[in-house]
Computed example of a mutant assay.
Amino acid sequence: MAITLAMLKTFVSVAENGSLMEAAKQLGRTPSAVSMALKQLEIEFDTQLFSGERKGSLTPTGIFALEQARNLTDQCDEVFSAIKAYAKNEIGYISLTCVPSVAEHILPQVIKAFHAQWPKVEIEIRDADSRSVINAVHSGRVQFGIASLAKNLPGIEFTPLFEDSLGLVSSAVDSRPAPNKSINSPKMRSFLKNKKLLLNSITQTITLPEILENQENSRITVHNVTSVLALVKAGAGLTVLPRLLVPDTDTSLNFIPFTDKKLRRTVGLFQRNGTLLSPAALSLIEKIHTRIAEIELNMGGNFTKLEQPTQER
């Protein structure tokens, strides 16, 4: 019979209590079961651990065995406690990367709520463009990512989270057309006349003739969202961005959605096929869903939460 953790714990209890009866009470076992466990342990060690039948004192081997058994049982208890805490989100590690709009407008409230509930979980966040997000997930550098879907990729699982409109973003000083009133092609050509379009990764994907015409006259490309919005506010030009990046609370900017309903982006969760997210990561994602639903209520038709099946724990 192999030595078991239960046998070692029984030995430690008897040695510390100096009595079979007290150890049996502590362990919730009968004295005969405790005595049998000690006999089996001595058979496995091929030596006596106690001096005499009353188990009141240890042999030299028993003293050494007690120190070793305590170390092992304490370590096992720590391991078991850590596993239970991990399963309950009390400890853990989450790594993710996401596009700037998610990092700025969705994650702050999510992380605040999550860490108030699970303060010992370590979280590492990076923001990047969609291509870099997907590459980080594919290479295994992060557990999951949140970005725009361009096309289905082998080895990557995509779960949609929300859609939002794309539109022109201008300074609030330029009040035409009215904020949040969609703009069609004839009005867009008139609106863009004599205006500089600040290029970014999104403008380069739009094939509207009015946008393409204006791109030819632009000499400014800005890859950072904060920078391009600062330029727009300063009156240096206008740009194209998703709705989430221009909240209603920012009165210095106008968001003018495109009439074409095809000009929307789909943002979702990326993870490698076959991987299971930790309980802590799943809990964080649940809070992301909740936050997206809150944003949908505030933004109306230009932002839509997408329904998806809940991942099993």
Rank of each mutant, 00 (worst) to 15 (best):
V34Y: 01
Q68F: 06
Q117H: 10
S175F: 13
S185H: 13
E22K: 05
F64N: 09
T47L: 08
V14A: 08
S101W: 04
E296P: 03
I156T: 05
S19M: 03
K305E: 07
K9Y: 00
K88V: 03
S95P: 00
T159K: 06
K25W: 04
L5K: 09
N254H: 13
L49V: 05
Q40T: 07
K88N: 13
Q271I: 06
Q75R: 13
L238W: 00
L96W: 04
S252V: 04
F114R: 05
G18K: 04
V133M: 04
L284R: 08
G18D: 07
G155E: 10
I111G: 00
I134K: 01
S171W: 02
I285W: 03
N254E: 01
H223Y: 15
L38Q: 01
K262S: 15
S218F: 09
K181V: 14
Y93C: 06
T221R: 08
P279D: 00
K195N: 00
D77M: 04
R219S: 15
R265D: 08
N200K: 05
P247R: 11
L208Y: 02
E78R: 12
A136T: 06
A116L: 13
L199R: 08
R54I: 04
K181W: 10
I91Q: 10
L149M: 09
S139N: 11
I256H: 06
V99T: 07
L282C: 09
R291Q: 11
S175I: 15
Q68S: 14
I220R: 02
I134D: 08
V102S: 10
F258E: 09
A37T: 07
A234L: 15
K196C: 00
G28K: 01
L161W: 01
